[in-house]
């Protein structure tokens, strides 16, 4: 009698191109171009260009097309959250992951067993995307970006308060918040709006396209203006959003005494934050922190948890200690990104 995880492993495998569902002949977030790809969300290390056919939420399809144009995939097939699709011998549905707009977990059922691939996820409220849905399953494949118990993200609203307090304290400077173009930028904007900040926000050109797309997809962001149109003086006391690398770039010289602000889960560790040269470190993450990761792997009640990119060792150690079956899954092509 083969165990349930072993049975699932016979049709859901790690290959050089990433996770492959043999029973349905498709890959999930493949690291290189493949004939058929299911994509959890639009970040570059999950959504690669050049696939023949892509299946993803309508939002993720739109984000991929906005970023890669025709390189996103020869055919883009949207699938609504919660809708079930039959592919070969498996049935597949997408469940919200709460990571960024359009992000989804992939739920695959085959031979009476269910596997859930979390993609990147978080459990907290985020005004820019649908909240995470807990799906119980036989095998749960989880991310572990912040899989160490030192990662405990404080409430986002408190971090935004710290940003606004700093803007008040340094009115002659411009606060330059380093945010990735997809997800973090729009979340920071939405959190500022939720905190009652309705002044215009100023954005680097690299963020414009996706901010516009978010608005088109129904996420209100309030007044956003291009930095390029502003004089140096007019940006004093303002909040500017730009890709994290821009703070150290010659581009930043157009800003009045920029105060570099970091906004990620890594910012909780001072040495890390200081390495990145920030003067204000906001712990603001779109990934699950340690408590969310451990809560989730307990709640899905899976026969086995497979842990990928991040601190697999620590999360597997925790799960084993808690009496859960877990193992590390080594997937190539993952990198530490704007978490």
């Amino acid at each position: 009698m083969t165990s349930v995880p072993a049975t699932v492993a016979s049709w859901l495998k790690v290959t050089e191109s990433g996770l492959y569902c043999a029973a349905g002949d498709f890959y999930i977030d493949p690291s290189r171009a493949v004939p058929r790809a299911v994509v959890t969300h639009g970040h570059g290390d999950h959504a690669r260009p050049g696939h023949q056919a892509v299946l993803a939420t309508a939002e993720t399809c739109a984000i991929m097309t906005a970023r890669m144009g025709t390189g996103a995939g020869d055919s883009m097939q949207p699938l609504a959250l919660g809708e079930t699709l039959r592919i070969g011998n498996v049935s597949l549905r997408l469940a919200p992951a709460g990571h960024v707009l359009g992000s989804a977990q992939v739920v695959i059922e085959h031979g009476g067993h269910r596997a859930v691939i979390s993609g990147d996820y978080k459990r907290r409220a985020d005004p820019t995307c649908t909240p995470f849905e807990l799906v119980q399953c036989d095998v749960f494949i989880t991310e572990a970006t912040f899989g160490l118990p030192v990662f405990r993200h404080p409430p986002a609203a408190l971090e935004i308060e710290r940003l606004l307090a700093s803007v008040e304290r340094f009115p002659e400077r411009c606060h330059l918040v380093g945010t990735y173009a997809l997800g973090k930028a729009q979340r920071v904007v939405a959190l500022l709006r939720a905190a009652g900040y309705d002044e215009p926000l100023y954005i680097h050109g690299a963020l414009a396209k996706l901010c516009a797309l978010y608005e088109r997809l129904g996420v209100a962001l309030g007044p956003l203006l291009p930095v390029a149109d502003m004089t140096k003086e007019a940006l004093a006391g303002r909040i500017v959003l730009a890709p994290p690398s821009a703070a150290n770039d010659r581009w930043a010289r157009r800003l009045p005494e920029p105060l570099p602000v970091g906004a990620s889960g890594w910012m909780g560790v001072r040495a890390r934050a200081r390495q990145r040269g920030v003067e204000l470190a906001l712990v603001l993450s779109d990934h699950a922190d340690w408590d969310e990761l451990t809560q989730t792997i307990s709640e899905v009640e899976a026969a086995e948890v497979w842990v990928t990119h991040g601190r697999e060792d620590a999360l597997v150690h925790f799960a084993t200690g808690a009496g859960l079956a877990a193992r590390a899954l080594s997937l190539a092509g993952r990198e530490e990104e704007g978490a």
Partner: peptide, 13 residues
């Protein structure tokens, strides 16, 4: 705190 997790964490921080 579990000493293994603490060790890895101290190492990281």
């Amino acid at each position: 705190v579990d000493p293994v997790l603490f060790g890895w964490s101290y190492d990281f921080v």
